[in-house]
Amino acid sequence: MTESRAMPKAERLYESCDYYDAESLLTDAERHVLGRLRAFLDERARPVLAEYWERGEFPPDLGPALIDLDLMEPAELTVDGPARGIYHAFRTFELARTDASLATYYTAQAGLFRTAVSVGASDEQKAEWMPRIIDFSLRGVFCLTEPEHGSDIAGGLATTARRDGDEWVLDGTKRWIGGASEADVLAVFARDVDDGNVKSFLVDRHAPGVTLEKIGGKTALRMMQNFDIGLDGVRVSEAERLHAVESFRAVAAMLRAMRSDVAWIATGIQAGAFEAARRYVAGRQQFGKPLASFQLVQEKLARMLGNVTSSLSMVVRLTEQQAAGVYRDQDSSLAKMQCCRAMRETVALAREVAGGNGITLAADVGRFHADAEAVYSYEGTHEINSLIVGRSITGTGAFV
Rank of each mutant, 00 (worst) to 15 (best):
M258W: 14
L387Q: 09
A187N: 11
V316S: 08
G380H: 07
D123K: 13
F274D: 04
S200N: 10
A277G: 11
E3V: 15
E3Y: 04
L157I: 13
S181H: 12
A282E: 15
F136V: 01
D261W: 14
A302P: 01
V389M: 01
V210M: 03
D80T: 12
R44N: 10
V400M: 02
L62P: 09
F58H: 01
A324L: 13
A183F: 08
P60W: 11
A10R: 14
K214G: 03
H243K: 12
D42R: 12
R12N: 06
L13A: 06
Q225E: 15
G63D: 12
S260M: 12
V119T: 10
T360L: 11
W53N: 05
G217N: 10
R84D: 05
H243T: 13
D371F: 07
E94K: 12
D123H: 11
G120C: 02
P131C: 03
L95V: 03
A342I: 00
D135Y: 00
V210H: 03
A363Q: 08
H382E: 14
V347R: 02
V297N: 01
V375R: 02
M304D: 07
D123V: 10
M343H: 06
N357F: 09
K199F: 04
R12I: 08
S181V: 10
S310K: 11
A250Q: 15
L71P: 09
G217R: 01
V188R: 02
E320P: 01
F227H: 15
T219P: 00
D21K: 08
V251E: 06
L157V: 05
D184F: 05
D68W: 00
V185S: 07
G325L: 08
S24I: 08
G268Y: 09
L62H: 08
H243P: 00
I388D: 02
A180Y: 07
Q298D: 09
E124G: 09
Q298K: 12
T219C: 00
E383R: 06
V119E: 11
T104Y: 07
V326Y: 03
V297C: 01
L37M: 14
A282V: 02
A271Q: 09
A154S: 09
T381F: 04
V389I: 07
G216K: 02
K9Y: 08
L25K: 14
L221H: 06
